[in-house]
Amino acid sequence: MKTEREQSRISRRDIIKWFTAAAAVSQFGPALSFGQGAVGAEGYGQDPKVAGIFKPGDHWPLTLTSSQRKTVTALADTILPEDEYGPAASSLRVPDFVDEWVSAPYPRQQAARKKILPGLKDIEELSLNLEGERFSGLSLKLRAKLLDRVTGEGSKDALAKRVAGFLHEFTSICMGAYYGTPAGWKAIGYVGNVPSPTFNGPPQEVLDRVGVTQTVK
């Protein structure tokens, strides 16, 4: 399986484009700050081209540092690992989505950024405290052990409590990304987005299980 870096859809051309944009903005207004602070980009407006295929970075620059992306990737792959349901989060480009999310210029995403960026720092600090190693450097087993300590019952210090709150928000973003892909659809049991000359309704097996009959003949 390809690594997340190999699969990244962010092209060199995009990176040059963002830095050009950042340079332009810094001349005339607040500089784009990569990896911290507020995002200075604009949204896609009220009349974007919608009938197209887009990727993170097409509408505004991505702003996570490589270090932050390492933490995002390790954490996303712990939350949504490769298993019998589907591939790991990073192979579905969840880290790109997280980067796009926290880099977006909209209020909801800006609010998330204020939780996610400190959270990434916190989880690395917690990992150093508990395991003596950066979170992104831990094995999957040790990462899971750390999450167990954070999400499990029992008393927690202030840092662990902060990490638990951050995890909730971070997991939510990852869920939106992971399950928006064909592999994610398979993992959750969504079947659709295919043309069909008829709509047959729920199969008999489903009707029987729920105890209903199809009333539209």
Binding site: G43, Y44, G45, I53, P56, H59, E100, Y106, P107, G180
Partner: peptide, 17 residues
């Protein structure tokens, strides 16, 4: 047929849309 992984922010609502 466009999928969430083909749209900004998975196609979620924003003040623009």
């Amino acid at each position: 047929f466009n999928r969430p992984d083909q749209a900004p922010l998975g196609g979620t609502s924003t003040p623009d849309k």
